[in-house]
Amino acid sequence: MNDDVWLVVPLYNEAEVIGDVVAQARETFPNVVCVDDGSRDGGAAAAAAAGAVVVQHPVNLGQGAALQTGFEYALTRPDMKWVVTFDADGQHQTSDVLAMLEKARAEDLAVVFGSRFLDDRTDAGVLKKLVLRMAVGYTNLTTHTRLTDAHNGLRLISREVVEQLEITQNRMAHASELVQQIGALDIRYAESPVHILYTDYSKAKGQSLWNAVNILAELILR
């Protein structure tokens, strides 16, 4: 079951939780590749112990670079049909991924984006919501897509689309770049509601809203 799905998990200093995250995910999806982005803790070993394939960047390159590495690893697996981008900090849930897979298969979609804003299960702060809304507005404006949440780390991408992606934004702007590249392809995509768990752990590690400024700068100056 789900043998044709590969979870791509960018990993950077998440030793505390990655073992549990991988073990839990593998109950549903046996194929997990963790791309260790030059962590200085024991995260890679914990991920490997939990049964993930670990690809290790020799130096820290950024989350976008880690995703692209994960994609290229997944493409070396001939039986891979779907790639799921999945966060290492336990924010994402496999039940959401199952729903996305079902939707993709039922509606013949090549890409399913997770969205926090299709229902009200996700509890984001007011300011965070505002910034995310503005971010998705900018993305929609510049990529001819119609999404409600462009900066969600949970995505389901079919093999044929993964083959055509090339993330060059190593750091945070990769989410917009992904949407842009997918928007430029002639394929069917949709969004699916997901529930992001903002745990104390993920909140403490989470992105500062200041990053919105950095992302914008990276997108404009390319």
């Binding site: 791309v35 490997a48 670990v54 690809v55 290790q56 020799p58 670079a65 290229e72 070396t76």
Partner: peptide
Amino acid sequence: TRLARRLALDEVRAESTPSQTG
């Protein structure tokens, strides 16, 4: 980045040769 990625992927390929993880 391309250089580092190639290194990382080659390393996994070399490791998986005597059938390790996965």
